[in-house]
Amino acid sequence: MKHLTDDAINEYLDHELAEFDRSSLELHLAECAECTSHLEVLQEVFAQLSKLPEASLSHDLSSGILRSLPQPHALPPLIRLAAPFQAVLALLGLAITIPYAYEKIASSMTGIEFGFSLQPWFDLQMMGLNWWIVIKDFHLPALPGFTGFEFSDQILYLGLLACSIAWFIGNGMLLKDTRRNHP
């Protein structure tokens, strides 16, 4: 009689044999004491492993584990203010450009009623322009050896350029930080 292989007995106990193979193996086991004995030895190993009790930790490891974790890198406060600052700039940009855009569209599409008024935008823009005129007309008191300082359109453009650069740097740092903390 041909005996069962180790593989077949192991796979039988692991429920990894197909139903047909299981049935033929069980038929063989019913007739073969040697293979049955082999099976029982392995069954005993299974039983011993399943009886191994769970051990308990002697102390809570969670606080030590949390201390060992890499701490999230905190951004400098100035950079954290970048987002609201950019939002304010964007709103200002909208306030300045929307009336121009409205006028442009309205002039190219004569006869079309938009059904809403942009008067509040014009008022807001006018207020901004008035402020700009006030600022432009403001002169710092002249000091000995200092000729004073005048606001000009160039100053406005330079300011906008500086804001754009700050925007790029701020977003770059935010992106870098996000990638580092969530790779």
Binding site: L61, S62, L69
Partner: peptide, 18 residues
């Protein structure tokens, strides 16, 4: 990035991992 949530996971599974 919530450390407390990860701490809770550690509490739940530390014995199993151990």
């Amino acid at each position: 990035g919530e450390m407390e949530a990860f701490g809770e996971l550690v509490l739940r599974f530390q014995n199993r991992v151990f």
